[in-house]
Amino acid sequence: MKRLWTILAVAGCGLALLAQTNSPVSPKPERETHILSDLLEFELESLNAVYTGNVKVNDPQMQLTCELLTARFRTNNGQVEVTGIIAETNVVIDAVDWEGRTNHATADKLVYSYSVVEGVTNQTLELSGNAWLTNYTLKFGMSAEPIIVDLVKAKVSAGRPKMTMQSGGVKSFGEEFGGKKKQPADTTTSPETPK
């Protein structure tokens, strides 16, 4: 039972790290994000931009590559804002948090949504289609369908998660967070959805 709780803690904290890497603790006033692609089709009235071919997103908190990226913008008090991003086909994300921990995720599709409803900000990231998350620092990997990260509440939900841990990964993580029990190597399990 303790082992299951440890695994759930690893999964929850690891996904929380992924969430935090996309929303820095001390954000700079002008966060600069670069999008490179072969082609762009931009509708200047509906503010819909479609990037195709070798799409690369370079951001202070993450790097993303895919084949098709659709970005939706809006103007709010004269300022351009991103309200949604959909990345499709061979989506690969590498996100490094403020402590240098590297998260690597792959999926068929990534959907980023941002909205403010009645003063409440909603900001989520959803990975779907063969979604896989690897934390190199904590040495674990997890597949789920889908992985939903609430960037505002730092809450992660994962459907039907399956987890793989490398030797020493859980041990070092457990020690860092006060764990004492040594975990067996290369353990695969299917924990409940972390809450």
């Binding site: 966060r31 082609l39 505002v152």
Partner: peptide, 25 residues
């Protein structure tokens, strides 16, 4: 259609256009 198509070496820069994390009330 007020559409602009750029066909090579597209480089987009967003400055503060991506939403920052805000704690919801």
């Amino acid at each position: 259609g007020m559409t602009l198509i750029i066909s090579n070496r597209v480089h987009t820069v967003l400055r503060g256009a991506l939403a920052q994390k805000k704690k919801a009330k």
